[in-house]
Amino acid sequence: MNANAIFAEALLDPAVPCPPGLASWNGSDPAQRFAVYRNNVVVGLVDALADSFPVTQELVGETFFRAMAREFVRAAPPRSPVLALYGQGFAEFIESFSPAAGLPYLPDVARLEMLRVLAWHAADAAPVSRQALAAALAAAESLPLARFEFVPALRLLASPYAIVSLWAAHQSENAALELAGVATDTPQTALVCRHELEVAIYRLAPGAADFLAGLLAGQSFGAAASAAFAGDPEFDPAATLALLLGAGAIAGIATPRRMS
C-alpha cells in the first residue's frame, strides 16, 4: 500500500490507527491532528447528504440522520469529485439499515429526494411549443400513434407509501399538523420535474401514473391512454395532459408520417 492508500483507509475507518510517518513540529500527538482530516472528510460528506435529503433528515431528526449518513459515507464514499450527484444508493442503504426499519416509507422518501436532485441538475430542454401542440392537434387522425418526448428533468417514482404527502407536509410551515393527517400506507406516484428554475413534485392519480409510465416506456398516446383507462376508470386524460404541460414535462409530440 502506498502512503495515499494508508491515509485514505484511516480517513474513513476510525478503527484504523492514525497512519505512520506523520509528524508535528512540537511533538504533539499526530493522531489528534490527523483527526482534523477524518473530521473534514466525514462531516463534509454528511453535510452534502443533509443538503440533498432535507425531508429524510427532518423525518428522523438530525442526530439520527447524521449518524446514519456517516455510516453510508463510510460504506459508500463518493466515486466522483462531483458531489452534486452524491447520494445515489443512499435509499438502498437506508433499506438495509436496521435501526430505520420502523419507518418503511423512509427509503422511498429518500429516493424521491434524490430524484429531485437529479432533476435539478438535469440537462436543459425547452418544453413543447404551442405551435407544435397545435400542429399535433391539427393532425388529429395520427394522434393515437403519436409518441411523446419528455424533458431530461422528468422523473417518475411509484411507491406503496404516501411519499408525496409526506414530502409535501415538510414544505409547510406546519409540518407536524399536516403529517398527522397523512395515511402513510397509501400508495402514491410522484412526478418530479424541473420547469425553468424550480423543481416541482406532483402527486399523480393512479390512471395518470399508468399513462405517464406507459408513455415513458415508449407506448403510443392511444395505447397508453387505453391502458390507463383500463386500470383506472377515473383516468382524466385532459387533466393529466394539462398537468404535464404545466409541469414543463413534455418536450415534443412525434406524430407518425401520414401514409398516402
Binding site: N4, A5, F7, A8, L11, Y37, N40, V41, G44, L45, A48, P77, P78, R79, S80, P81, L83
Partner: peptide
C-alpha cells in the same frame, strides 16, 4: 482521490 474514491478534502 484514491482508489476511485473521492475524499472531499
Amino acid at each position: 482521490s484514491h482508489g476511485g474514491n473521492f475524499y472531499n478534502d
